[in-house]
Amino acid sequence: MLVFSLLALLLVSSSWAEVDVATIEEDTSRELSVGELLERANRDRHPGPDEPTLIGGDIAIKPGADRNADPCTSRGCLWQKYTDGKVYIPYYIANHYSSREISIIKRGLESFSAVSCIRLRPYQNGDYEWLSIESRDGCYSYVGRQGGGQTVSLSRQGCLYHSTVQHELLHALGFNHEQTRSDRDSHIKVYWENIIDGMAYNFDKINTLNQGTPYDYNSVMQYEKYAFSKNNRPTMLPIPNNNVAFGTATQMSQNDIDRLNRLYKC
Rank of each mutant, 00 (worst) to 15 (best):
I93C: 03
G56D: 02
K230Q: 15
S155W: 01
G174H: 10
T83I: 05
E134A: 13
T73A: 05
L209E: 13
L154N: 05
G48H: 08
Y88M: 01
K62E: 14
I61Y: 09
D204W: 11
K62V: 04
R119N: 07
S74N: 05
N231S: 00
K189T: 14
P90E: 07
G108T: 05
Q222M: 15
V152R: 01
R45V: 03
W192V: 06
T208F: 00
G138T: 07
S186R: 08
D20G: 12
I195N: 02
G126Y: 01
L154P: 04
L38E: 14
F4Q: 09
A41G: 09
S116F: 01
R40F: 06
Q166E: 15
A249Y: 04
G48I: 11
S116A: 14
I206K: 10
L9V: 10
L38C: 11
G56Y: 00
A41M: 05
G64D: 10
S29Y: 13
K81R: 15
G147N: 09
F4C: 04
A41S: 13
H96N: 15
V115H: 13
L11F: 10
Y91K: 03
K106W: 03
W16M: 12
P122S: 09
S182L: 13
M1N: 02
Q80T: 13
S135I: 02
G148I: 04
D256N: 14
V19L: 12
V34T: 06
I257K: 11
A249E: 00
D137E: 14
T213K: 06
F203S: 00
T23N: 11
P238V: 08
P71L: 03
G64F: 11
V143K: 07
A69Q: 09
I55W: 07
R233A: 12
P240A: 00
E129C: 07
T250P: 05
C77E: 11
N255G: 09
N243A: 13
M1T: 09
E25Y: 02
S13N: 07
A22S: 12
H167L: 04
C139K: 01
